[in-house]
Amino acid sequence: MRMRMEGWELGLPFALVGAAAGWISAGVLASPLVDVALGGKQEVAAVCAGIIGGLIGALLPRVVAPRQAWHGRGSTWACLAALVLPGGALAGGLIAGITGGSLYTAATGVVNGVICAAATLPICGAVLEAALRAERARLGSIVAASDRRAVWQILAASLSAATLAALPEWPAARLGQVPVPEIVGALALGAWIAIGLLILADAAALGHRLPRAAADAAEPCSPDAIAPDPAVPRVDLGLGDDVHARLARGDAYRGRDRASLLVIGSHAEARAALAGALRRGALCFALGAAVLVAHRWAAGDGAVHAYRAAHCALGHDRNCDAVEQRRRAMERSHGNRPRTGERRPDLL
Rank of each mutant, 00 (worst) to 15 (best):
M1G: 15
V293S: 10
D224A: 15
L198Q: 08
C312M: 07
S25E: 13
A131D: 08
C48M: 11
P86C: 02
A272N: 03
D346L: 14
E129G: 13
P233Q: 08
A218C: 08
V47N: 05
A89F: 02
A252P: 07
Q68F: 01
G109T: 06
T99W: 13
A213V: 03
A282E: 11
A144I: 05
T76G: 07
G185H: 06
L347Q: 14
A78S: 11
V28T: 07
W77I: 12
G335I: 01
G265Q: 04
T163M: 04
G88W: 01
P168T: 08
C320T: 10
P122W: 05
A299Y: 02
A272G: 04
P179I: 01
P61E: 08
A310I: 00
I52Y: 06
R2D: 07
P86K: 03
P66Y: 07
A156I: 00
A106E: 11
C320V: 09
V28R: 06
R212E: 14
V127G: 03
G74V: 12
G11H: 03
C312N: 11
A231V: 09
A156T: 00
L187M: 12
R326E: 12
G190P: 01
A131G: 14
G176W: 02
R328E: 13
P32Q: 09
N112K: 11
I95T: 13
A118P: 00
G7K: 02
G238H: 08
D257H: 03
R174A: 10
L90Q: 03
V323N: 04
R67V: 13
A58T: 13
A173D: 01
A30N: 05
A172E: 04
R339Y: 12
L239K: 02
V232N: 08
G240I: 00
M1S: 15
S141V: 03
D241A: 15
E135N: 14
R209T: 15
R234P: 09
A203D: 03
S25K: 09
A91R: 01
A126C: 05
A161W: 06
R209Y: 12
A20C: 12
A45I: 09
I115V: 15
W170V: 10
P32L: 10
P66E: 09
L261A: 09
A272E: 08
N336K: 10
G341V: 07
E219N: 12
C312A: 15
A117V: 09
A144N: 08
